[in-house]
């Protein structure tokens, strides 16, 4: 009875989460939904006499794999959202038809099979689930297990090879960077000094507050653009900052800078110069 309740609750949760995974526009939400499904399944494993797998599911999937997903999402652009408009003609229709057909057929197939009551694992796990499983893995399946070690090492090496990038020129020294900054200042008047920290000369030592210049004016450079955007949406933005940002946007448009501006991590942005209006950890490090 307890199992039934658990199952039905988790079944509804996991199916809902799976649908959410498929249909949410934002990848981050998808990842979270996947996490929900995985945890639900871990519980179902535990219910079905597989405590070891339940734990592994939590640790490996929900812990490692999901973190990896989220990490890559961060690299690729956490706030990017997919357009859900289908571009391939008929793809969505046929995908859903095939999916429903598949599920219905499989479900009917399974329903048609007359299953006896489950035998249960009590007989084979007399020594406990984990020791029994260990015995299986290290005796009958020891070769497969060893092969998986090779697989994992290969995968690790492969990931390194794929992610590795050859540097074709030597890394610029601090001196070169400094020279370039002043050359840019000479040409465009861009401030060569480090960006002001948030809240400098401000009454609030908070990241959402703009820094004040010595003359008391607001320094637009100190404004975090993402937070400013949020505030603009919520309507809590400082009107002065909003004005400055608008002016900036106008100036940018006038400069007719057509280069695509994607929010990029430095690790990925190899060609695009970083917009210096964003607060950069790197600058601070210097």
């Amino acid at each position: 009875m307890g199992e039934s309740i658990t199952f039905w609750v988790l079944a509804v949760v996991s199916v809902t989460a799976a649908l959410g995974l498929v249909f949410s526009r934002r990848a981050v939400y998808s990842a979270l939904m996947l996490g929900v499904v995985m945890i639900s399944l871990a519980v179902l494993y535990a219910v079905q006499d597989a405590p070891f797998l339940a734990v592994v599911q939590i640790i490996v999937y929900t812990g490692a794999v999901m973190m990896l997903f989220l990490f890559v999402l961060m690299l690729v652009g956490v706030d990017s959202s997919d357009s859900l408009v289908e571009t391939i003609k008929g793809q969505r229709f046929w995908a859903i038809v095939a999916g429903i057909g598949f599920a219905v057929l499989l479900g009917l197939g399974i329903g048609n099979v007359l299953l006896t009551a489950p035998k249960g694992l009590a007989g084979v796990t007399a020594a406990g689930n984990v020791p029994s499983l260990a015995e299986q893995i290290f005796t009958r399946h020891v070769f497969a297990f060893e092969v998986t070690s090779a697989l994992l090492i290969t995968a690790a090496l492969g990931a390194m090879v794929l992610a590795h990038r050859e540097r074709t020129e030597s890394k610029p020294t601090q001196k070169q960077l400094s020279r370039a900054r002043f050359l840019a200042f000479g040409k465009t008047g861009k401030n060569p000094a480090p960006l002001p920290g948030p809240g400098t000369y401000a009454r609030h030592n908070s990241i959402d507050m703009p820094a004040l210049l010595p003359d008391g004016a607001v320094s637009p450079l100190s404004v975090n653009r993402i937070i400013a955007r949020h505030e603009a949406i919520e309507g809590t933005i400082d009107p002065e900052i909003a004005r400055i940002l608008q002016e900036e946007a106008l100036a940018e448009q006038q400069a007719a800078d057509t280069r695509p501006t994607k929010p990029l991590d430095d690790e990925l942005g190899d060609t695009e110069p970083l917009a210096d209006t964003e607060p950069l950890v790197e600058e601070d490090a210097k």
Binding site: S14, V15, S30, A31, E86, Q91, I96, G99, F102, G111
Partner: peptide, 26 residues
């Protein structure tokens, strides 16, 4: 049977997701 049907359902949803979504990570 319930577990298996749930499994089939999740599998089908995953399959549809593979076909419908364009973001490689999703």
């Amino acid at each position: 049977t319930h577990y298996l049907v749930l499994s089939a359902l999740l599998f089908a949803i995953g399959g549809v997701g593979v076909l419908v979504r364009r973001n490689a990570i999703v």
